[in-house]
Amino acid sequence: MDSNLLQEGLDLLLYGMGSVLVFLTLLVVATLIMSAVMRRFFQDPEVPEITGEGLETSPQPAVPDQRLLTVIKTALELHRDQRKK
């Protein structure tokens, strides 16, 4: 084998992988800097506290419509029957 060809291939590999590594490192650094800038100048608004007055202590779950449950049940049965065939 030609050792010069192998050396050129290795050089190309190292330059390519090195440039990808440098690019990704710069991308991470740029993302961290942008994140820090956004956190500093655009802080999250404060959420006002909600007092317990007028709120239900245990909200009741919504009862699903019986017609809707029947439709869903029928659709599931049809689907399972089609899969068995």
Score class of each variant (00 low, 15 high):
M34S: 10
A62I: 13
E8K: 10
A62V: 14
R83F: 04
D11M: 10
V29D: 01
T57S: 14
T51I: 08
T70I: 07
D81F: 07
L78A: 10
L76P: 02
R39Y: 08
Q82S: 11
G9Q: 07
T31W: 08
M38Q: 08
A36P: 00
L12V: 01
R40F: 15
T31K: 08
R39C: 02
M34W: 08
R67Q: 13
M34Y: 02
D44S: 05
L27F: 07
D65T: 07
R39D: 06
T31A: 15
T57F: 11
I72E: 10
E77H: 03
Q7D: 11
V22W: 02
L27I: 03
V20A: 12
M1L: 12
L26G: 10
E77D: 12
R39L: 14
G18F: 04
A75R: 09
E8T: 04
E56K: 11
E49V: 15
H79E: 09
P45M: 06
K73E: 15
I50P: 00
G16T: 14
R83M: 10
T51D: 13
R40Y: 13
L76G: 01
G52P: 00
F23N: 06
Q66C: 00
V20C: 00
L24T: 04
L13V: 03
G9T: 02
L13Y: 12
L10Y: 03
N4F: 09
D65R: 09
Q82H: 02
R80Q: 15
A36W: 08
T57V: 15
G16W: 02
F23D: 05
F41G: 00
D81E: 14
I72Y: 01
V47I: 15
P61C: 04
E56I: 08
F42C: 05
F42H: 10
L14Y: 05
A36F: 09
L14A: 07
V37G: 00
Q66N: 09
L69P: 00
L5H: 07
P64S: 03
D65Q: 07
V28K: 01
Q82T: 07
G18P: 04
F41Y: 14
G9I: 08
L14W: 02
S58K: 09
E46L: 15
I72V: 14
D11L: 15
R39H: 09
I33V: 15
T70S: 14
F41K: 05
L12Q: 09
R83Q: 12
V22D: 05
T51H: 06
I33S: 02
V71F: 03
G18V: 06
R83N: 06
A75M: 11
L13E: 03
T31I: 13
I72L: 14
G9H: 03
L5I: 12
T74F: 04
D65C: 08
L10S: 03
M17F: 04
M17Q: 14
H79S: 13
L6M: 10
E77V: 10
G16E: 05
D2W: 01
E77L: 13
D2H: 06
E56M: 12
Q82K: 06
D65G: 01
M38F: 09
V63M: 11
G52L: 10
V47C: 02
T74E: 15
K84G: 00
R40M: 06
F41W: 15
K84T: 09
E56C: 02
E53Q: 14
P59V: 05
V29T: 08
V63K: 12
L24A: 12
P64F: 02
F23E: 07
G54K: 07
Q7R: 12
S3P: 00
S19V: 03
L69K: 06
M1I: 05
